[in-house]
Nucleic acid binder design. Structure first.
Lengths: 208, 208
DNA sequence: CGCCTTGTTAACTGTATGGTTGAAACATAT
DNA sequence: ATATGTTTCAACCATACAGTTAACAAGGCG
């Protein structure tokens, strides 16, 4: 059986290592040698499993691009009030970021370089699959507005505000940690504060 | 007169070009040749004015790192209500991002790579200067809470939420534009919506 | 066994890139 | 005019990097 079809041990090992290195350094900053070292294999093996750097990068992206969206997808499809859903998304998304910091970093690098790869992947599954998660969230917001559960807001803008205030926290942590040493010294405490603050400010912002 | 002391035409030209290229590609992705081309000079000139890539990168950062903070600094020092200040910061910061997109990008690249350069610069002007702008903003939030002008919130977390929801919009635009074509097709309209939405949701979120 | 497929390796290649050099052009002062 | 310091450039160098090659090992199978 060719390695193309299945997913061998080595292949997932490579993807894991590549996610780490691409996440840390970005596509340009990443070195194939470093990925090989991280995966504990020879550099030539990378080119055996993945033709070249671009292919590997795209493979990594396909492997993880659903992480964030699947959280949103999961919470939006639950049978629960808008209030519960909002709390659920905030908590779950923050936890997801803590557990997979490299995914966040990869996404940001990708956005900075024009998001050509992501866009192609999203186009492929236009409307269906995880790519539509933000759209579904926007729809749930619209419904909640109609039901009078929350004030009238622009669904897509609120979606961006929600995701932004969650993601930015991790992204800007290096700089903010000079102003707020707790981020480094008591990360769990700050995380709990963050969850509470975000729900507090955003839900109150939506309240009538 | 040596070029070290003053700031010649060429020097600012280089800094401008370098900001552009570093902003687009990041420090690793940027090519000295490309910066030289952008500045319309020979590559050797870069090394004449700035010893090497690291020096140039840091010079660019020193040249622009105050952009965002100066907006906050300006708004927080005005004699106005908290409500007006919040509106002022949102509008001015969004405008600043539109006018200087590369500064935002440079900051993000810097954060992704550990923010070593920024941190050093911030440490130098510890407590004083523009670096303390977020701290001043947090102080203004604290005062407004004490005066009963707004609900009780964690000042630093609110500062991060505010900056995050502003900055993320530009950062994630490449991806969100697939879900919200208006971002590309009617940018001014979306910008106006964004200003209105952010003030609306955040000020309401702070209201008693 | 002989032979094919899959997986693995060290050594190699071509090129892009950061950085250097030495000389030419230019300005300014004496 | 000559001297002194500044700005510009083409060509060059060393290195680091993505990607290649060719040989080799291990297993399946006629």
């Amino acid at each position: 059986m060719g390695h193309i079809a299945g997913s061998s041990e080595t292949e997932t090992q490579i993807l894991k290592a590549a996610l780490c290195v691409f996440g840390q350094k970005g596509k340009d900053g990443a070195r194939m040698q470093e990925i090989a070292d991280e995966a504990g294999i020879n550099k030539a093996m990378l080119h055996y499993y993945f033709r070249n750097k671009d292919t590997l990068y795209e493979a990594v992206f396909r492997h993880v691009h659903g992480h964030f969206f699947s959280v949103i997808e999961s919470e939006t499809s639950k049978e629960q009030s808008f209030k519960q859903m909002l709390k659920g998304i905030i908590d779950a998304l923050l936890d997801e970021h803590v557990q997979h910091p490299d995914v966040n970093r990869l996404w940001t690098h990708e956005n900075l370089s024009g998001a050509h790869v992501v866009r192609r992947i999203l186009e492929e599954s236009k409307g269906t699959g995880l790519g539509s998660a933000p759209g579904v969230l926007a729809e749930r917001i619209r419904e909640a507005v109609d039901k009078g559960e929350i004030r009238s807001v622009h669904p897509m803008h609120f979606t961006m505000t929600l995701m932004g205030s969650i993601i930015f926290f991790f992204l800007a942590a290096p700089v903010f940690s000079t102003l707020m040493p707790d981020i480094v010294e008591h990360p769990e405490k700050v995380l709990a504060e963050r969850k509470q603050h975000l729900f507090d400010i955003l839900y109150n912002g939506l309240s009538n």
